[in-house]
Structures are given as structure tokens and as C-alpha cells.
Design a protein around this nucleic acid. Structure first.
Length: 485
DNA sequence: GTGTAATGCGCG
DNA sequence: AAAGCGCGCATTACAC
């Protein structure tokens, strides 16, 4: 943590690891040692230099770093837009992230300890019931042992159950299909939910707090192929929210004495960007009119007026509105909506007519990937696509879906970083950015600053790139703990 | 004991 | 025939 010793400069003029990733994200694991060896032909164990040799090698190291920075600058100049991505986005976001990592977020570890004990009892109780139905004790957490109990000992139907490399799958989707065949299934599902939350969050997070009970994540810039951040040790970008039990865990992230959290998240961010990048004028117009996008989509596809759309029809439209950005198939749609494959394919055909610009756009992205070997965001961040011409259907199809998705997800990531850089400049003293979760920012500030911070966030994020023909909508909230947001 | 693949699941 | 993008992490099972 160089920042703690005031060593890290507030302005970054070049970062070699990040630069290497921008030029070729496939070499994300490249260490400085490897880059010295590969790009400069200098063999040195940078990570492993004995202290007494540091001084005598310092000259070579500094000169090497300079040389690498220079070479990367030259390479980036040859890739359209990449210098601007580096200078306008990647270099400036580094000190912002460093500040967030050092600041950390407070965890109510005592509340989690209490939850841990409650969960232990609940889990034990569920396990005993499962053993009763199974007529034996076994490791419920072992997929192979569970599969044996379900499909061999209890002889549950295996029709339509997905097979993996080692046998029948027991994942949540398959268990859902078996739900009505035996009372043990619901218990296993509950067991999974409780043990997952207990081991991954309730028991793990308190071990990582500092002396002020704060958690410090590590935001990584050179991992996600789309340009998103990743968060590790601990990952604070996957804290539970979807279930009631999960929300309780969120409530244990708390603002300090006299302080409050403010959050701001982009509404329908990816779909709005898809509309822009595909130049889908009708979809852009719908967003600019603040329409309920899923209802409007359902109305068009099912050929009814918006107020006649049923909840099921809206749900189907919602699934495809999101799924389309990932290259969802007719089969995938039928699974996700619970309709027949025929209905789903019919639905998809009509949707393709309705959103022709989107489908033309995604097709053009696959074209570009095949022709140029890469796709890119609105600002020129690139993702190489070496698998796009693979002779293996599965590998190639997967690359095609990734090519369809990266420019949208990546542009979202670019805009979020730009927003964070601006927000950092505008925040009053006493307000600090703590977390970024892909389409949202969480800030801690004095309670008296709440309104002001909300306004700064909304204003900055909605207007981060005014050239965009679609309105960006940002929702802001505040509260004393993360569960309030 | 350490390392890795497979499985499963938390989030956007 | 396969069938949804991007991540990180806990656990099991097994090789060494």
C-alpha cells in the first residue's frame, strides 16, 4: 500500500502493467519480470531480488521501466483511440481506486458472528432432515455423493437432467426440475443457500477486517476482458442482495458514527448503450420518453396495447431484453421463461423483426471480430478474439457471443470509470467513494452532506458523456447501512 | 502437505 | 450437437 506512505503520486503518467493489458488483454498475467525478459531481453528476478542487491540493480530496473513505458506508448499510438483510453480513463482511475481501497468499508462483525451461530443450527437441522429422507448420512456438499443419493438410492427421475463430466448435475436448475418429485429436494436447496452464505460471506468476511473493523478490497484493472473492474480479497462486488437472507448480510455493512452511505446506480445501462451503439432509433426514443421498456417490448411482440400486457408477457420480454446482449438462443429463452421451445423461437423471430438494428449490430460485431481479430468499445478499448475462427463449434460460438457482448459491457465500464474520475474531483471534503459495482457507486459521507452528494452523483453520472443520443438515468439512495440502499 | 480441476453459486 | 456475457470464491476430489 504505497499510498499509506504517501509514495503513490496523485497523478499517474503511465502504468506498465495496465498499459500491457490495454495493448493485449490476453497477457493479463504478465509480470514485470516477464515483460523485462520478453520485451527487453533482460533476465532478472524482479519479484525476488535479495535486499542487498536492490541498490546496485536500481539503475537497470528504472531504465527498464522507462524503456517499457516508452515502447508501450509507441504501440498504443498505433492502435486507434487507445492512447486516449489510457490517458483519459485508465491512468486517472488508478489513484481513485487506490483511495477507495485504503479507505475501506466498515463491517459489523459482531452481527455476522451472531448470524453464524444461528445459521449453524439451521443448517444442522436441515441436514438431519435430509439424512432422514436419504436413510443415510452423507456429505450433502459433495455433488457426487448427492447425485448418488438422489438418482441411485432414491431413484429420482433422470429424464431431462443435465449431465456433466462426472455424472448427473445437481445444480440449482436441475433441482428445480426435481422439486415436486421428492421432499428432499427443497431441503437440499435450502441447505445450499444457507451454507453458501455462511461459508462465503458470514464466516469469511469478519476474518478480513482491519483494527477499525473495515474491509479493504483489491480492485483489479487487468483481469476482466471487457475492461470492467474486478474485486478480490475480498470480492465486494458479489455481496448478496437477491434473497431475504442475503439482504441481512448487506445490512452488516455500516456507515460510521455520524456518517451515511449514498449510492447511485445507472438504470438499464447496458440496454441503453446497446440502443445507441446499434443506432436503434426506436429503442433510443423509448428510453428518452422514460417508457417501461419491457412492457413496450412485450406489447409490440405480442401485438397488444401496453396496458393489456400480462405480467408473464412482460417477464418474457424482460428475459429477452437482457438475454439478447449475451447472445441468448431460442433454447435458452425457453428454459429461462418456462415456455416451449417452439413458442420461444416464435417469440424470438418477432423480437428480431422489432429490434432489427440490434441484431444487425451484433452480426456486424461478429463480422468485425472475424475480419480484424478484435472488437472494441465506443472509446477504443480492445478485446482480441482469437477463438472467433476456431473450427470447434462450441469454442467458436462462445467467442461469437463474447464478441457481441464486449463492446456494450466494455463501454459501460469505460463510462463508469469516467464518472468515478469526475465524481472524485467534485466530492466535498468528508465524502469518499468506497465501492464500485459495475453500474453503481457507493459513497460514505457526513450525514449533513447526504443531499449534496446525491446531487453530485446524479448530475455527474447522467451527464458523463453528453454526446450520447440516449438519456442516462441514475437512481440515488441513502441510508445508514448497505441494506437501506 | 500443495496444486488443480470440477462443481456450484454469489453479484452486475 | 450445444444452447447466456463478465467476474471471485468455497468445497470436494484427487494427483503428486
Amino acid at each position: 500500500m504505497l499510498l499509506q506512505f504517501k509514495v503513490l503520486a496523485p497523478v499517474i503518467s503511465h502504468d506498465i502493467l495496465v498499459g500491457g493489458f490495454l495493448i493485449n488483454s490476453l497477457q493479463r498475467e504478465a509480470s514485470l519480470t516477464e515483460m523485462f525478459d520478453k520485451d527487453l531481453g533482460i533476465e532478472t528476478e524482479l519479484d525476488n531480488i535479495p535486499p542487498e542487491e536492490i541498490i546496485q540493480k536500481a539503475g537497470v530496473i528504472v531504465a527498464g521501466l522507462n524503456r517499457l513505458a516508452f515502447l508501450q506508448g509507441e504501440q498504443m499510438s498505433e492502435l486507434t483511440g487507445l492512447i486516449k483510453v489510457a490517458e483519459d480513463i485508465e491512468w486517472p482511475i488508478i489513484p481513485v481506486l487506490a483511495n477507495m481501497e485504503v479507505e475501506g468499508i466498515e463491517l459489523n462483525a459482531r452481527a455476522l458472528h451472531k448470524m453464524s451461530e444461528e445459521f449453524a443450527e439451521i443448517i444442522e437441522d436441515i441436514a438431519v432432515q435430509i439424512y432422514g429422507y436419504a436413510d443415510q448420512e452423507f456429505n450433502i456438499s459433495s455433488p457426487s455423493q448427492l447425485a448418488k443419493v438422489l438418482f441411485e438410492d432414491l431413484d429420482l427421475p433422470t429424464k431431462g437432467i443435465k449431465k456433466g463430466k462426472t455424472g448427473y448435475s445437481t445444480d440449482a436448475k436441475q433441482l428445480e426440475k426435481l422439486r415436486w418429485s421428492h421432499p428432499i429436494i427443497n431441503l437440499v436447496t435450502q441447505y445450499r443457500e444457507y451454507t453458501k452464505l455462511k461459508s462465503t460471506y458470514i464466516d469469511a468476511l469478519p476474518k478480513l477486517v482491519d483494527e477499525n473493523s473495515r474491509l479493504h478490497t483489491d480492485f483489479r484493472l487487468t483481469v476482466a476482458q471487457t475492461g470492467r473492474l474486478s474485486s478480490a480479497e475480498p470480492n465486494l462486488q458479489n455481496i448478496p442482495v437477491r434473497t431475504e437472507i442475503g439482504k441481512k448480510i448487506r445490512e452488516s455493512f455500516v456507515a460510521g458514527e455520524g456518517r451515511a452511505f449514498v449510492s447511485a446506480d445507472y438504470s438499464q445501462f447496458e440496454l441503453r448503450l446497446a440502443a445507441v451503439m446499434a443506432d436503434d432509433k426506436e429503442l433510443v426514443e423509448l428510453f428518452n420518453q422514460d417508457a417501461d421498456i419491457h412492457t413496450e417490448t412485450a406489447a409490440k411482440v405480442y401485438d397488444v396495447s401496453p396496458h393489456e400486457v400480462t405480467p408473464d408477457q412482460r417477464r418474457h420480454a424482460k428475459v429477452i431484453n437482457f438475454g439478447i446482449l449475451y447472445g441468448m438462443s431460442g433454447h435458452g429463452l425457453s428454459v429461462a421463461t418456462g415456455t416451449t421451445e417452439l413458442e420461444a423461437k416464435d417469440f424470438l423471430t418477432k423480437y428480431k423483426e422489432l429490434r432489427k438494428p440490434i441484431f444487425d449490430y451484433t452480426a456486424s460485431l461478429i463480422e468485425q471480430a472475424k475480419k480484424k481479430g478484435y472488437v472494441e468499445t465506443l472509446f477504443g478499448r480492445r478485446r482480441p478474439m482469437p477463438d472467433i475462427n476456431s473450427s470447434n463449434f462450441i469454442v467458436r460460438s462462445s467467442a461469437e457471443r463474447a464478441a457481441m457482448n464486449m463492446p456494450i459491457q466494455g463501454t459501460e465500464a469505460d463510462l463508469m470509470k469516467m464518472a468515478m474520475i469526475e465524481v472524485e474531483k467534485k466530492l466535498p471534503k468528508g465524502a469518499k467513494q468506497l465501492l464500485q459495482i459495475h453500474d453503481s457507486i457507493i459513497i460514505e459521507c457526513n450525514i449533513s452532506q447526504t443531499k449534496q452528494v446525491e446531487e453530485i452523483l446524479q448530475e455527474t453520472m447522467e451527464n458523463i458523456y453528453p454526446k450520447l443520443p440516449v438519456k442516462l438515468k441514475v437512481d440515488v439512495k441513502s441510508g445508514k447501512n448497505w441494506g437501506d440502499l
